[in-house]
Design a protein around this nucleic acid. Structure first.
Length: 285
DNA sequence: CTAGGATCCTGTCAGC
DNA sequence: TGCTGACAGGATCCTA
């Protein structure tokens, strides 16, 4: 369930495999699940990937024929490159090490020097063909807010006032308020800022908003350093599966364990329909 | 306009 | 061993 660090890790990894003719031209696009591919597949055949970009959690392939592919992995999407080298990123499950294609493969893009598999268990994700000069006009891309590295505490504070009745957790998951956070980093950023996820957004001070943004930067930087949820982390050197969350999570999936700040037991509750992890003692309502 | 809940889909896990 | 319901790292659509 890829969030910004995972998507950025995929961008970096696939750039190394595909850009500057490394993967060569696209020879064919095989769509195994129609709802996973929007647009005309033939429009990209024959083109090279000249650049890979990311906006929020969206991954963008710019092609040599003025077309682009906008991809969103949503909950369970994965990108797996199989060429001279293998690179995988996205939702961590056995697909990373499986034979491909498999039951969850939705799209196969065949290049001269390898194949890119788009796997997606729940079929929420998609790949979409658009003209490169229309990427910014895409409905999802256009609505995206700034990422934590570009946003100030004052900006976030003002937005929170507009949504003052909603729980703070719900607002920071809203990509039109701040881009890139998903369920893990929302919980981690709130823990960093010592704010209870259920607190009304209108009761978050400007100073706290600033700390919250700082927290988002810190936890996502830390995850990026660990390589997001990539094959490298998922499969340890001895071949067993690893949990990359262990590398940085303070609250996510740590319910029942001790808070590393105060020793209190981390709890799990529901906020806005999402599982939410927090320390009841050091995160104030 | 906002807030909150249902919804898209497949798979896994806990509990009976 | 089934069966059932809850839940899952996302975003949109609908309703009040």
């Amino acid at each position: 369930m890829p969030e910004l660090p995972e998507v950025e890790t995929i961008r970096r990894g696939l750039s190394g495999c595909l850009v500057r003719k490394k993967g060569g031209r696209i020879l064919s696009v095989e769509v195994l699940e129609t709802k996973s591919f929007i647009g005309v597949a033939e429009d990209v055949v024959g083109a090279n990937v000249i650049e890979m970009r990311r906006r929020g959690k969206a991954l963008i392939f710019d092609l040599s024929n003025k077309k682009s592919l906008i991809c969103h992995l949503r909950m369970t999407g994965q990108m797996i490159w199989v060429g001279d080298e293998r690179f995988a990123g996205g939702h961590p499950n056995d697909n990373f090490i499986d034979e491909l294609p498999n039951k969850q493969t939705r799209v196969i893009i065949e290049f001269e020097r390898g194949k890119l598999f788009f796997n997606d268990q729940r079929k929420f994700g998609f790949i979409k063909v658009v003209s490169t000069n229309e990427v910014e006009e895409d409905a999802f891309i256009r609505k995206l807010a700034k990422e934590p590295w570009e946003m100030t505490g004052e900006e976030l504070y003002k937005k929170l006032q507009r949504h003052r009745g909603a729980p703070i957790k719900s607002t920071i998951l809203d990509q039109t308020i701040i881009a890139g956070l998903g369920n893990i980093y929302a919980d981690e950023a709130l823990y960093f800022a010592k704010i209870n996820p259920k607190r009304k957004a209108g009761l978050v001070s400007e100073k706290e908003a600033k700390t919250l943004i700082e927290g988002a930067r810190v936890v996502m930087d830390r995850s990026l350093e660990a390589g997001g949820s990539t094959l490298r982390n998922y499969v340890k050197s001895d071949g067993t599966k690893g949990d990359y969350l262990e590398l940085f999570a303070e609250v996510f999936n740590r319910q029942g364990q001790e808070c590393r700040r105060c020793g209190e037991k981390i709890k799990k509750m529901k906020v806005g329909g999402r599982g939410t992890h927090y320390c009841p003692k050091c995160q104030k309502v």
